[in-house]
């Protein structure tokens, strides 16, 4: 059985905390699981905490961008929180600025940002 990243539901949002280096398959699995969870629950937001991630490459950043667009299609919003400085500079040098993805410093601020985004959207 493929290992999975657990998805928690917290204050009307789905919370994912990535603590291990994400292999490609695990990342693809997470995207699918999040889509299914959004469809199933009443949650209208996703918070992905990547403060435990040492490395994000172009593959994973594409998956993260896809999760954000998918959420919007499903009438929800996604916020990426806790990106490490070394990861941020490397992604910028790679040319991956994730323009369509909302971000926040930590989970608390991520939740606040999510509420603000949901208040703006119709």
């Amino acid at each position: 059985m493929t290992p999975r990243i657990p998805i928690l539901e917290l204050e009307g949002a789905l919370l994912v905390t990535v603590q291990v280096d994400l292999d490609d398959q695990l990342a693809v699995q997470l995207e699918e699981d999040l889509g299914a969870a959004l469809a199933r629950s009443s949650a209208r937001g996703i918070i992905i905490d990547i403060s435990g991630l040492e490395l994000v490459d172009t593959f994973l950043s594409r998956i993260l961008a896809q999760i954000a667009s998918m959420s919007r299609v499903l009438g929800a919003e996604a916020v990426l929180v806790g990106m490490r400085p070394a990861v941020a500079v490397t992604l910028v040098e790679l040319g991956m600025t994730l323009d369509g993805v909302s971000t926040a410093l930590d989970i608390d601020r991520g939740i606040a940002r999510l509420h603000a985004l949901l208040a703006e959207s119709p």
Partner: peptide, 29 residues
């Protein structure tokens, strides 16, 4: 799956060689 193992090995090698955090991440990425 091997890509993950390889990049983790690179990151560990760079850190143990005294690379600064961001530089180790650059090479591993």
């Amino acid at each position: 799956r091997d890509v993950g193992d390889a990049r983790r090995a690179v990151h560990a090698a760079a850190r143990s060689a005294g690379f600064r955090s961001a530089d180790a991440v650059r090479l591993a990425t």
